[in-house]
Design a protein around this nucleic acid. Structure first.
Lengths: 145, 145
DNA sequence: GTTCCTGCAAAAGCTTTGCAGAAGA
DNA sequence: TCTTCTGCAAAGCTTTTGCAGGAAC
């Protein structure tokens, strides 16, 4: 899992650009999504931040994620059947979900699809490409047994 | 909304090929998905079939749709945030969901993406391409006002 | 008679809402 | 002080589960 480090200044600047006031909760939630690129669910973010912010409530996580999504800072992924997963918006990429272990991988596609702005007369705002199947890891494990 | 007619014989044959026994409920549910290509939710199917099958329960709709999905007769779409939508499987196509009216359109894409069988070493079983935006209808309405 | 199917009721999850107290400007 | 944010509790929805009665073969 790729992890990086984002400065508080950068986080504040991102929020400010979108007209969202900074708060401990918002900075932490945005930082989590940006640093851990693991497509977290609401519950995962909540569980991981609880030690740092013991008074955090899930409502706040929901509120914040919705707000960040509305402002275009993060994306809500419809790749899972049961939960919404979140992703920081960088360059467009596709996702692969393993039906066996449930892990979601980022996938680079040099596809012109992302450039689609109009299709059948409909104005495109966002594009999601989701693959499902068996990931490399799980395939190896099956072979071993 | 495109609507077509599917014979009971054809429905029975499709189920039989997949090793699913025919029943009034299963035939009706599969017929609904095949004839009305409107990407229905569980609840929509339930509501529409209730007049014909007054004893129908939602559990049966859930069970049947899950079974038909497992057998590969229909697809579960992860395009909506709140509900699962179902689609009969024909040739591969993408979907466009209007953020204003919520309607889901079938979209033809002559893309090689559908032929992807392996990506980054992961074995692909299914591929979904989802666009979101403002549909032609809603765009027209906005202009008129 | 045995097996599979159906449907009611209840439970389980995820997400939203209402509201009061807290924090911040 | 006034506005905005936070968080608890409760409610709302979709989906799943357990189980008993019913249908089919």
């Amino acid at each position: 899992m790729s992890v990086r480090s984002v400065s508080t200044e950068e986080l504040k600047s991102l929020l400010q650009q979108k007209g969202v006031k900074a708060s401990v909760q918002r900075l932490s939630i945005l930082r989590y999504v940006m640093e851990n690129m693991d497509h977290p669910s609401v519950d995962k973010i909540y569980q991981r931040l609880l030690p740092q912010i013991p008074t955090l409530s899930k409502t706040t996580v929901y509120n914040t994620l919705k707000q960040l999504t509305d402002k275009g800072l993060i994306t809500a992924l419809n790749i899972d059947d049961t939960e919404i997963k979140y992703d920081f918006i960088e360059q467009p990429h596709a996702h692969f979900r393993c039906l066996s272990c449930g892990h979601i991988y980022d996938v680079e596609l040099d596809s012109a699809i992302y450039q689609t702005q109009t299709i059948d007369g409909h104005q495109v705002v966002s594009t999601q490409i989701n693959f499902k199947g068996i990931c490399n890891n799980c395939k190896q494990k099956t072979k071993e047994n």
